[in-house]
């Protein structure tokens, strides 16, 4: 994805160019590109009048940020206490085996990223897996693997016509009026 200076300025211009908005600006950039491109960090530092080092420090301190592009489908496996007790770690392992990557990595084709996260706040329905902000309750290692396979199959069917708008799954018939803001 090309990173246009113009677009980055548009994002920054949603706020007054003050340091207090640095976190919000970085979050919006992350949402736009799925990671924080170097050019965007440099421009943010310049516009806010802080050093690049300070912005880089924020980009590496907060766990929501990534300095590398993430996959089209980001699998977040919850390892909060309840999910841990209910078997979250085994789901993570089965996804690691299925995707051939470790938590924190992205498949070489750029399709899937796998992340271990600490509590998504759906503890009553654990273990929880979230795919591109779509939560799945009471997951098992088996079901998580099937979800990957169904996405991969749908992707293969789409035959490279570009990414679909929603996670293709039994759960994609979402009511648009109540949809979570998409990443």
């Amino acid at each position: 994805m090309t990173v246009e200076l113009e677009r980055i300025n548009e994002i920054i211009d949603c706020y007054s160019a003050e340091r207090m908005h640095a976190l919000a600006i970085l979050e919006d950039i992350q949402r736009e590109y799925n990671f924080l491109p170097r050019k965007a960090l440099e421009q943010t530092a310049k516009r806010l009048g802080v050093t690049e080092g300070e912005i880089y420090r924020m980009a590496t301190f907060f766990k929501s940020f990534s300095l590398h592009p993430k996959g089209e489908y980001v699998f977040k496996v919850c390892l909060g206490t309840a999910c841990h007790v209910m078997g979250g770690p085994r789901i993570l392992e089965s996804l690691e085996r299925e995707l051939g990557i470790k938590a924190g990595e992205t498949t070489p084709d750029g399709k899937f990223s796998l992340e271990a996260v600490r509590c998504l706040g759906a503890c009553a329905l654990g273990p929880v897996v979230v795919v591109n902000e779509e939560p799945y309750a009471h997951t098992t290692p088996d079901r998580a693997v099937k979800l990957v396979r169904s996405i991969a199959a749908d992707e293969a069917e789409a035959d490279g016509d570009g990414p679909p708008d929603e996670t293709p799954s039994a759960r994609s018939a979402a009511d648009p009026s109540s949809a979570l803001p998409s990443g």
Binding site: V128, Y136, A174, D175, S178
Partner: peptide
């Protein structure tokens, strides 16, 4: 339609009701 409800499939139920 809290996060718990949505995770458990409330959106599909809502759609079915409508």
């Amino acid at each position: 339609m809290g996060t718990c409800g949505i995770s458990a499939g409330a959106r599909e139920v809502m759609r079915a009701i409508l």
